[in-house]
Design a protein around this nucleic acid. Sequence first.
RNA 1: GCCAUCGUAGCUCAGCAUGGUAGAGCGGCUGAUUUGUAAUCAGCAGGUCGGGGGAUCGAAUCCCUCCGAUGGCUCCA
Length: 668
Amino acid sequence: MNSNQLFKIRKGEPFQDAVPANLKNNIIAARLNGKLYDLLDTSPEDGNVEFIKISSPEGEKILLHSAAHLLANAIVELYPDALPNTSNEGEDTFYYDFNMQPISIEDFPAIEQKMQDLVHKNIKIEKKILPKLNLLEEFSGNKYKQDKINENVEDGSESSMYIQGSYKEFCRGPHVPSTGFVKAFKLLSISSTNYEGDVNKERMIRIYGTAFPDGKQLREFLQRREEAIKRDHRKIGQEMDLFTFDNERAPGMPFYAPNGAIIRNELINYMKEINTKSGWEEVWTAHAFKDIIWKQSGHYYKYKDDMFLFTLPNGDSYGLKPMNCPGHIAIFQRNIYSYRDMPIKYSEAGTVYRYEKSGEMGGLTRPRGFTIDDGHGFVREDQIYDETVSLLKIIPSIFKTIMGIDEITYDLSVMDKEHSENYLMSYKCSSCGEKFMLRAASQEYKCPNCGSADLAADFTMWDDATENLRKALDGLNLKYTEYPGEAAFYGPKIDVHIKDALGRQWQLSTIQIDFFMPGNFDLYYIDSSDKKVRPVIIHRAIYGSYERFIAILLEHFNGKLPLWLTPIQAYVIPVSENYIEYAKNIHQKLIENGIRSKIDISDGTISKKIKLIRSMRPAYIIVAGEKEYNNKSVSVRNRSDKTREYGMEDFISTVLKEIKDKDIDQAF
RNA sequence: GCCAUCGUAGCUCAGCAUGGUAGAGCGGCUGAUUUGUAAUCAGCAGGUCGGGGGAUCGAAUCCCUCCGAUGGCUCCA
């Protein structure tokens, strides 16, 4: 069925009756004039109805939602004291929050069994429209549902309740017509949360699960999950001997072992190349600053609790840098610039330190010390567009080169104009004419010159900047989603996401426009009429952080990195003692050609050495014995366990080309 | 920071419920073996069981506390 195929329906006719017989098992909801209906609803008017397949994206959401209710139904039957709160659906998963006794995954089989029973009974899921008062009465034993009703239903109006056997749910719907539609489901994990996300409110048990139209899709999903666990960068990192953590002496601080440092350095060098080509000059800044700079930048007041701060015996107070911008600003401030000098663009692999709360850390994806491929462009307002375009051209090409992916999505975060007080804005004083910037929500709302509160907001700066970002995205034909209200208080931004080999989305790059910091540091350039003008800062990172990016690469490639990033590019094994000399010879030649080679001349069989080195993911394993000695050749085994004999020189040039081209796939 | 689970040798893990002062495999070292593409054989050395405290004649095992890790929540400049 074409999802757009429409079927005639008459007013008063149940949608169910309009479903063609051959589709009955596949259809779970209906859409008429853009509104979703349950199949058991009757049509409010004559029209053309579209049916929602269970396997469509919308159908899958409805299925997850119904599975969540199924879980709640099972929970209240098994745990009569449990109070269901609310459910939510993500991509492929749902959760449901309950106020209930703590349970563990040990209890899952029993809960799943109960859910399965309810599925087998194929209980009808019926809707009842009730006035608010009656709804409140129906849910008199559950204050969470009552809160929901009070929030969502206006006094004197009505809303829907769903009845699934003995289970009732306040819900907008739609749902699958009966529990039998939830065929393939599984409970996944359990965690806790607080009511309404508020740490001061009571704790809820959150149960996660998933559901699919059929068992095959469920199995595939579970396999992908398994695979993700197997590919955990912490596990791969240990297998490849890349990095370590010293949890006693430096929690949250990654230590790179030689193999890991190789990957990191290759990525840094590549970024340096790109920076140089695109005019982002390399700078370097130290890690400890007097706290006055953090007070000036504003970080101190907002992030003091998340900074590493310390005071020396002489009373001087310092902080480790949580951001690189003030350092780059300090460099910018060493000079006075003409409008002709602009833009000034600084970049740095800048290591920052943030005291992440204990529960917020995680491997390399969220450490306390990490290195950003940071860049700060000091630009004229009229240069925002060009710089954004230039970055938006570079970014996808980098991810294509390194990861071989084309699937990139862009978010444009803009101001919520209904709440302009949350943002740093330009104002003009209506009484004295003074122009200045102010964030109304957190500063005194008055003219700094005359004290008048009669101020006129000026959106031009924001509008222009946002329009420039929009134009840049449009001009490059990039599809993007706009998120009003998601902008930083200091300016709009573009975030870039990639999808990895396991289908997971990661936010990596960011391009942020900043009107705030230049003011805090009183930055300026001299324009053509000899006036001081405030520049705008563009903050940008492409990888994001090296630590996180390495983690993503390891999981994306399952540790089998492209050759240029691979720590052990060649691993040489002599067949026996007699060929150690020849093996050393090969190893030496590879090293001389800049290829990262290791040699294993220890006792033991080839089989065993290969077996044991596999976890390190060397790109090529080279076996050297009589045949190779006589042919002046190497026998090479690639990561797919294929072998091939190469002449020595031939192999070296093949490898060098693969490295130089940053190939994703191996040469053979 | 909150909830849950967890912390035993370089790595993977057993032992803990029913307390009696540690055990395996891999790796390492030594010796034998000289090997042709996912583990040749034998021997040896590694741990005050995350730290501290407590009840007990006695704790890896029970209790408390601190530290750390993992999965979520919150946060992520």
